[in-house]
Simulated assay, not measured.
Amino acid sequence: MNREKGIETVTLMVRRDCRGVHGTRGEALCPACAALLGYARQRRDGCPHGEIDSRE
């Protein structure tokens, strides 16, 4: 899975959860969910393994 597709998936999941749990609308995130998404991006950017082929 390429890095961008992976972060898109995580972003959609966090937005959906934030809407359901915290009542946000549209693409807005509460501060806690925005921090979670920032952490996920930071971990992705720092991953030493690079691209991972999901067909393995």
Rank of each mutant, 00 (worst) to 15 (best):
Met1Val: 06
Met1Pro: 04
Met1Tyr: 03
Asn2Phe: 01
Asn2Pro: 15
Arg3Phe: 03
Arg3Ser: 14
Glu4Cys: 08
Glu4Thr: 15
Glu4Val: 13
Lys5Ile: 04
Lys5Phe: 02
Gly6Leu: 14
Gly6Asp: 10
Gly6Ser: 12
Ile7Leu: 12
Ile7Gln: 01
Ile7His: 00
Glu8Asn: 12
Thr9Lys: 10
Thr9Trp: 07
Thr9Phe: 11
Thr9His: 10
Val10Ala: 08
Val10Thr: 09
Thr11Cys: 03
Leu12His: 08
Leu12Asn: 13
Leu12Tyr: 11
Val14His: 00
Arg15His: 12
Arg15Ile: 00
Arg15Leu: 10
Arg15Gln: 12
Arg15Phe: 01
Arg16Leu: 12
Arg16Pro: 00
Asp17Asn: 11
Asp17Pro: 00
Cys18Tyr: 04
Arg19Phe: 02
Arg19Glu: 11
Val21Gly: 01
Gly23Tyr: 06
Gly23Asp: 09
Gly23Pro: 06
Arg25Gly: 05
Gly26Met: 02
Glu27Val: 02
Ala28Cys: 09
Ala28Arg: 13
Ala28Ser: 14
Leu29Ser: 02
Leu29Pro: 00
Cys30Arg: 05
Cys30Asp: 13
Pro31Cys: 01
Pro31Val: 01
Ala32Cys: 04
Cys33Met: 10
Cys33Ile: 03
Ala34Trp: 00
Ala34Cys: 02
Leu37Tyr: 11
Leu37His: 07
Leu37Pro: 05
Leu37Cys: 11
Gly38Ser: 03
Gly38Gln: 03
Gly38Asp: 07
Tyr39Leu: 14
Tyr39Arg: 14
Ala40Thr: 04
Ala40Trp: 03
Arg41Gln: 15
Arg41Phe: 10
Gln42Arg: 15
Gln42Tyr: 10
Arg43Cys: 08
Arg43Pro: 00
Arg44Thr: 08
Arg44Cys: 06
Arg44Tyr: 08
Arg44Lys: 05
Asp45Lys: 09
Asp45Gly: 12
Gly46Phe: 05
Cys47Leu: 06
Cys47Phe: 08
Cys47Thr: 01
Pro48Ala: 10
Pro48Ile: 04
Pro48Cys: 03
His49Lys: 06
Glu51Ala: 15
Ile52Met: 13
Ile52Gln: 13
Ile52Tyr: 10
Asp53Met: 12
Asp53Gly: 09
Asp53Ala: 13
Asp53Leu: 12
Ser54Phe: 14
Ser54Ile: 15
Ser54Pro: 15
Arg55Cys: 05
Arg55Leu: 09
Arg55Gln: 07
Arg55Pro: 00
Glu56His: 12
